[in-house]
Amino acid sequence: MQTGTDTVKKGFASMQKGGVIMDVTSAEQAKMAEAAGAIAVMVLERVPADIRAAGGIARMADPARIKAVMAAVTIPVMAKARIGHFAEAQVLQNIGVDMVDESEVLSVADEERHIDKRAFTVPFVCGARNLGEALRRINEGAAMIRTKGEPGTGDVCQAVRHLRIMNREIAELVKMYPTLIAKKAEELRVPIELVEKVRELGRLPVVNFAAGGIATPSDASMLMQLGADGVFVGSGIFKSNIPESYAKAIVEATNQFDQPDVIARVSENLGEPMKGMERPDVRMQERGN
């Protein structure tokens, strides 16, 4: 019997597909997310919009808070560690969270290197703005990628931008002349086998969610139509006027993303979405590349 294998880690990510992973800060919020149909919850001290407002250094959540959420819900529980902060990740693995997010939403702990994720039995999800970032994270052992947006802004633009970049780069790679692959792998700073795998599959070799700035059912539908395997919603739910309605509506929109009549129905009378901001001072997406 083997635990923490690559198959088991990537398999966990596969089970999340088509789902919505919601940021929560308490057991009550987690229960609400579960009741709304969230596939998993992500525990933080503050949602990204509040991290922006609070300023200062953002760190891993209090283990007691994470444990309270784990006790309250039956769906998977994830938590964030700072980029490169392997000790925070060790703590999260020790508590028993189902997945660690090495996240740009928190402050950066190591400017030179990310966590060596192969050294862990817990699976990791990491953010990426382009194919190079994604493949470097996968090469470090990430079992799942989420295309970065600009967290806590309620502005979907950056998530769209990065998903389109990723799609374009993969399409170019698939068409690329074989003799150029070695150079491309060198440029992306990853083994050639990984680049060949992307060419063969025509997509990333792990599950890829969209994240950052998703605030409405239509946002979720758009990113799913652009090829995301599912969505993370951070501030978009608990910073809206009626979180419960938004949570349910975004779950349904993610699921029926290609049905405009469904998106129309679930978008009716939702109340105010999160307020959002167009040009934030702090660009979290630039952390960790």
Partner: peptide, 14 residues
């Protein structure tokens, strides 16, 4: 019995 074998930490191959 849902999650009879535990959380992801206990997920395994056999």
């Amino acid at each position: 019995n849902r999650n009879a074998f535990g959380r992801q930490r206990e997920s395994f191959q056999s």
